[in-house]
Structure formats: C-alpha cells, structure tokens
Design a binder for these strands. Structure first.
Length: 139
DNA sequence: GCCAACGTTGGC
DNA sequence: GCCAACGTTGGC
C-alpha cells in the first residue's frame, strides 16, 4: 500500500464533511495541477492518505482511504483531470500541525514542507509511521 | 523556445 | 492583508 496526503481548505471541504459523506465516500475534486493529477492517478483502492486542513487549521486531522480509483472529471469533458473517491477512516486523536511537522528533522523532506503548494502529495512509509505516532494514531 | 506578466495557493 | 512560491499564459 502506498500513502498520500491530500489538502483541503476546511471552509470548502472539511474533515467533518468527509466524515458526513459516510463509508461510501465521495469524490475528491478540484485538482487542476498536473503533478497532483499524476499522484491521483497512481492511487489504488485501499491506499490511505493524511487529510490536511490548509489555511485554517494547518494540521493533519485524520486518515482517509481510496474507495474508487481515478476516473475522468465530468466537470471538465475533454480535459485530462480526474477524480478519486475517498472515505474517512478515523480522526487523529491529536492533530499534527504544520509547525510540528516542520519542527521534526525526520520530516524535513516531506512534500508538505518542500512542496508547500502541491495539493496531492506522496508520503513515504517512514513519514507515514512517524506522523501517525505524533498524532497518537494506531492504524 | 524564452521569459515577463499574471493568477493562485497558502503560510504568516 | 501581505507576499513568496510557483504554475500558466502569451508576446516576441
């Protein structure tokens, strides 16, 4: 299984919204960046992703899981954009703030730090385990 | 094909 | 609200 990080502004789509979408999950839309799109296309059903609140919160607040692999975005016919469906798995007992991530030398190479603006990012196994530990989350 | 202008993201 | 980072657009 590979791991990822997906960003959303909570005023647009929050963790609570994702939880409310239930076990069937719902589409992750709005990606209009080719690097982020390639990451969406590499996701497999069952892959898990950190759910990060950008702008307000600025913290990893929970774990989501891919329930449907990439498919064309019906909002952009003829264009290459894709959607992936996610469901909420569990919240972090202790959200991990961006400041806390930046304060950890072990996480200095996380895309969250090095590619701040990328909205869909890969996360290494080591980073995943470390951040789960910080969040008090036991997968 | 280069690069300046412009728009967007997102931390501060 | 400001501005740095960075992706995209368009003139040449």
């Amino acid at each position: 299984m590979r791991h990822w990080l997906i960003k959303s502004e909570p005023s647009v789509w929050s963790w609570d919204d994702q939880v409310a979408a239930g076990a069937a999950g719902t589409k992750w839309d709005g990606v209009r960046n080719h690097t982020a799109k390639l990451n969406l296309m590499a996701m497999k059903t069952g892959d898990q992703a950190f759910f990060y609140h950008s702008n307000e919160g600025k913290a990893i607040v929970g774990v989501a899981e891919v329930v449907r692999e990439h498919y064309p975005d019906p909002a952009t016919p003829g264009e290459p954009w894709v959607l992936v469906d996610f469901k909420a798995v569990a919240p972090f007992p202790k959200p991990v703030s961006l400041a806390a991530v930046k304060a950890e030398p072990q996480l200095a190479k996380m895309a969250l730090v090095t590619q701040m603006r990328l909205s869909v990012q890969p996360v290494t196994d080591e980073e995943w385990a470390f951040v789960c530990g910080m969040g008090g989350y036991e997968g």
